[in-house]
Design a protein around this nucleic acid. Structure first.
Length: 315
DNA sequence: TGCCAGGCGGGGT
DNA sequence: ACCCCGCATGGC
């Protein structure tokens, strides 16, 4: 069953001169949410069609039948798109960084789109103990299996599921998303966000969200930090996994045990963003390939690869 | 064919 | 505080 959404208005938001819409729309995205030109942005029950209309971004708003029409504020759109995120401090550090200085030339103006804490937690769990490809395939499967299929202007897209949808669907549908043993964790997260819906906002304090996430079995330090970065734009604590731990130990010449300390010393409140940028700069290559690329000085993204920036062309 | 990953927790020491 | 192992799945 495909539901039809209808046009209910539009809004314009200012676009800073150094903001790169194409990169922001591209990074870690799927084909049903970006086609190379228009960003199809689900926010709550609404879908926004966002495109560049210099010097602003223009968003057409589509709503389900009988919906309240209110509920999309420019501030929300700005948060999601990172329009009020001032990255100058980050670029200053990155320009002197042995790993990222090269890539910021081509990635300047890219922001990571924010998702809700609930969806960020799904993304994060899918990254656990899996390659980039497998992780995003799992998240893709979840959106397609549980999301709401909607039609707008003749094209089909998906509104991601609320946590209750996953709880009601039963374990066999979840198994079909091929997330393996992560299913337990996803169920635990769905229970948490169902029980405490106030956690699933962009106003929640990072420490509170972090603490609540800790109660879910299967959610550890890495997952929590990734959630804070992807939903709240909180970058003070970097999500360091085996991949980044090894890479940073090589690049900065420190023991793996002290990578986090070194990372926070260098990046401060930009630590989490630096971690995310690193995955883009190295095309999220598996560890051994990533290390070879660093040795060869190939630390810019390669547009011909299946990578965080081109994922939307493949899935 | 077997390994073995952008984690994590449980059970050992 | 540490190791160390299993875990679902898919990619190589």
């Amino acid at each position: 069953m495909v539901e039809q959404l209808s046009y209910t208005g539009n809004l314009e938001v200012g676009k800073p001169a150094d903001y790169n819409f194409y990169l922001t729309a591209s990074v870690y995205n799927f084909s049903f949410w970006f086609n190379g030109e228009t960003l199809i942005l689900p926010i709550g029950e609404f879908i926004l069609f966002v495109r560049e209309n210099d010097p602003v971004l223009k968003a057409d708003i589509y709503s389900p039948p009988g919906s309240s029409r209110v509920g999309i504020s420019p501030d929300i759109v700005k948060h999601v798109l990172g329009l009020s995120e001032d990255l100058r401090g980050f670029y200053e550090l990155a320009s002197k960084d042995p790993l990222l200085s090269d890539s910021i030339r081509v990635l300047a103006g890219m922001h990571f789109r924010a998702v809700t804490p609930w969806l960020a937690s799904l993304v994060a769990v899918c990254q656990q103990n899996a390659s980039f490809k497998q992780g995003w395939r799992m998240y893709y499967n979840i959106i397609k299996a549980f999301g709401k299929r909607v039609r707008i202007r003749g094209l089909e897209t998906y509104i991601p599921p609320e946590p209750g949808v996953i709880l009601r669907a039963g374990p066999e549908v979840l198994r079909a998303t091929r997330i393996g043993y992560r299913a337990r964790t996803v169920t635990g997260l769905a229970e948490l966000f169902s029980r405490k819906p106030y956690l699933n906002t962009w106003d929640i304090r990072p420490v509170e969200l972090e603490e609540e996430l800790s109660s879910v079995k299967g959610v550890g330090e890495y997952t929590k930090r990734l959630v804070l970065a992807l939903s709240l734009r909180y970058y003070g604590k970097p999500p360091i996994d085996r991949w980044l731990r090894k890479i940073a130990s090589v690049v900065y010449g420190v023991e793996e045990e002290s990578v986090e300390e070194e990372y926070v010393k260098r990046w401060g409140n930009w630590s989490g963003l630096a971690a995310l940028y690193t995955t883009v700069a190295l095309d999220a290559e598996p560890l051994s390939t990533a290390l070879e690329r660093i040795r060869a000085g190939l630390t810019r993204p390669d547009p011909s690869k299946y990578s965080p920036l081109t994922l939307w062309k493949y899935l």
